[in-house]
Simulated assay, not measured.
Amino acid sequence: MTRESRQLESVLHHDIPLTRDMGLKVLDWHDQQLRLQLPLEANVNHKSTMFGGSLYCAAVLVGWGWLHLRLKEEGIEDGHIVIQEGQISYPLPVTSDATAICQAPSAAAWKKFLTMYQRYGRARLTLATRVVNAGSDEYAVLFTGQYVLHR
């Protein structure tokens, strides 16, 4: 685990205590991709699959964490990240531990986001995240969220 990954996990567990109870772990931050792990055991529902609310949290948090880490890389530490809006679908059940993944948006979207923040002190960025069953490439959860950064 990288230093950035350890710091993000610490921030999540301190600032959002629910993440500790969910057993959320930062797997890695590499090539502008963030991966979080969520264990089934701590998030199981009455059907022995992962609870939809836990999956929603993981989908939102991997986007929040991605933005947190990218802003640190850019040297921007004066803003507050919030989720403004999100849409989620659950095409497959999660029957094992889950991996939540967020990759970078387009370079143009990122540049526009940074420019807006620097100019106005507020900017919006849409991030697509997904959740897969551990060891699978099939998307069990698809999430699109609009994140806002403000001073």
Rank of each mutant, 00 (worst) to 15 (best):
R35H: 02
R35L: 00
L36N: 01
Q37A: 13
Q37V: 01
L38A: 00
P39Y: 01
L40K: 04
L40W: 01
E41L: 08
E41K: 10
A42N: 13
A42P: 00
A42S: 12
N43A: 02
N43K: 01
V44L: 09
V44W: 02
N45R: 08
H46Y: 04
H46A: 13
H46C: 08
K47G: 01
S48Y: 02
T49C: 06
F51C: 12
F51I: 13
G53N: 13
G53F: 12
S54W: 11
S54C: 13
S54Q: 13
S54G: 15
L55K: 07
C57D: 03
C57W: 07
A58T: 11
A58D: 05
A59P: 07
V60D: 09
V60G: 04
V60I: 15
L61D: 08
V62C: 06
G63Q: 06
G63A: 12
W66S: 07
W66Y: 14
L67Q: 02
L67M: 10
L67D: 02
L67W: 03
L67P: 05
L67T: 02
H68L: 02
H68T: 11
L69P: 06
L69Q: 03
R70I: 03
L71N: 04
K72H: 10
E74C: 10
G75W: 09
E77A: 15
E77Y: 11
D78Y: 03
G79I: 03
I81S: 04
I81D: 01
V82W: 12
V82R: 09
V82M: 14
I83W: 03
I83M: 15
Q84Y: 13
Q87R: 15
Q87H: 15
